[in-house]
Design a protein around this nucleic acid. Structure first.
Lengths: 107, 107
DNA sequence: TGGTAATTTGCCAGTTTAGCCAAATCGCTG
DNA sequence: CAGCGATTTGGCTAAACTGGCAAATTACCA
């Protein structure tokens, strides 16, 4: 694999890596449902330290998945790319396929 | 976030984590194009140690993304879930959005 | 049965990630 | 400007991920 090809796949991998965490997936789903949330709301829902949630949000932002809007002392985040959801439907499909295989194996 | 909710998102995160690596994305794309490949072919294309490629394939398999078929001493892998590709189209969309924003910032 | 090619697994060292606390910022308001 | 709430960042430790080498396994063939 030459450098250019690697760069192509590495860029994609970085996006996926940004999504590959339960807390960040929760954030993505919540933003897709509610449209916009501030850090404090998400922190409340997630139940982790606010600094941790802020870091997750920063990671999603630097991957280009969410954008932020400051409103006074608060920062509101929203999804930047709507197709993320189709995206997650496919993950769902994989999960279902896995479950079916499990059933088949168990008999 | 209660335990059950966490489990839901964690299962999805595990799928995404399995895809979140340049070599594994390369494998997924190659399998989507060619249908089936053995470890030695993929190793040749990727240019890493065969043990490394084998590990990546094992990871994709245990996530339910690929399945394998033994044929003599060779093991052939194939995609198990076709929608993975739509999936990656969305990643592409994110990348394009990022690129456009970059241009806007520079311009 | 011995030899060879294809694949997987054990092991190790280097790198990255996650999460918490504490400290620093930022934006208001008195 | 001091104080307060919201958010981010620095620092640290524990855990997870990577990749290569060597050893073990597996399938086939002479």
């Amino acid at each position: 694999m030459d450098d250019q090809t690697f760069a192509r796949f590495d860029a994609r991998a970085r996006i996926l890596k940004a999504l590959a965490h339960p807390t960040r997936l929760f954030i993505v789903e919540e933003l897709s449902r509610h449209g916009e949330r501030c850090v404090c709301e998400l922190t409340e829902m997630i139940g982790a330290d606010m600094s941790t949630v802020s870091r997750h949000l920063g990671l999603l932002r630097s991957a280009g998945i969410v954008s932020d809007r400051k409103q006074g002392a608060q920062v509101h985040y929203r999804l930047r790319v709507p197709c993320i959801l189709d995206f997650l439907k496919c993950v769902e499909t994989v999960l279902q396929a896995n479950a079916q295989q499990q059933e088949a194996l168990l008999g």
